[in-house]
């Protein structure tokens, strides 16, 4: 009942504004005539609308139109030919000394940050640290077949990994030839026979673990 009442009251304003459909307007007028909807409420709403309109300011719109148009012509003179760009499309010109100083300050802070956090120097340098902290580290690395040997060599160079598991695809797409051999650089003094500091370390085969246990 109250929903119907509220709706009909809201419709009173719509009736004043001539915004009701023909059928709704006819029904509401009939309701007003029959006294089902209070007429004094309708008269009150209509009177408010009227008083606001009576006391609103009116002016010569055409004269104002001419004045504002002329003023806009002056304000925008020459602006129409120039391309307009949104703020993010605009270029900003800065004096060279300011740019140079800003670059130096940024460089200084970058150096300070790198010195303070050694872990940020290189990703590779962080790997042993991670491995030391985590009991098990699972990493999925996709490596081009031709670079597999390089990856294994690099992992070997870290000298801190205990186990490297290589998961091969279920469908065999390659053939195993001979026995798998893990290569590790020889101990100092015995492997580096050439005794040249920059020379590649000699890789020596390690015994493969058997089912009985890890061989010595």
């Amino acid at each position: 009942m109250s929903i119907f009442r509220n709706r009909s009251h809201t419709d009173l304003s719509a009736l004043v504004d001539d915004e009701l459909g023909p059928r709704s307007a006819r029904d509401l007028r009939a309701s007003l005539d029959a006294g089902h909807t209070p007429r004094d409420e309708y008269d009150r709403i209509r009177a408010v609308s009227q008083i606001v309109r009576v006391h609103r300011m009116d002016a010569d719109v055409d004269a104002a139109d001419r004045r504002v148009r002329a003023r806009l012509e002056r304000s925008l003179a020459g602006a129409w030919g120039a391309p307009r760009r949104l703020w993010w499309e605009r270029t900003v010109s800065l004096p060279m000394p300011v740019v140079a100083t800003a670059a130096l300050v940024l460089l200084f802070f970058a150096v300070a940050v790198v010195d303070r956090f050694p872990g940020t120097r290189s990703a590779a340098a962080g790997v042993p640290q991670i491995a030391g902290n985590a009991e098990t580290l699972n990493l999925q690395v996709n490596v081009n077949a031709s670079q597999t040997e390089d990856l294994l060599r690099w992992l070997n160079d870290q000298n801190s990994l205990e186990t490297v598991t290589i998961r091969l695809p279920d469908s065999a797409q390659f053939q195993l030839r001979g026995e798998p051999v893990i290569m590790r650089p020889g101990l100092p003094g015995e492997a580096d026979a050439t005794d040249e500091g920059d020379a590649e370390p000699v890789l020596t085969p390690l015994p493969i673990p058997t089912e009985e246990g890890v061989p010595e």
Binding site: R56, M57, V61, A64, R67, V68, R69, L72, L76, A79
Partner: peptide, 30 residues
């Protein structure tokens, strides 16, 4: 312009201010 000017005039209360505001609105529109 006509409807904008009427709305602005009736809120602001004087013609000079209404013209000023309309000018500003159209500059922003540009």
């Amino acid at each position: 312009f006509p409807v904008l000017f009427k709305v602005v005039l009736r809120i602001a209360g004087d013609e000079d201010t209404a013209e000023e505001i309309c000018h500003e609105a159209f500059i922003r529109f540009y």
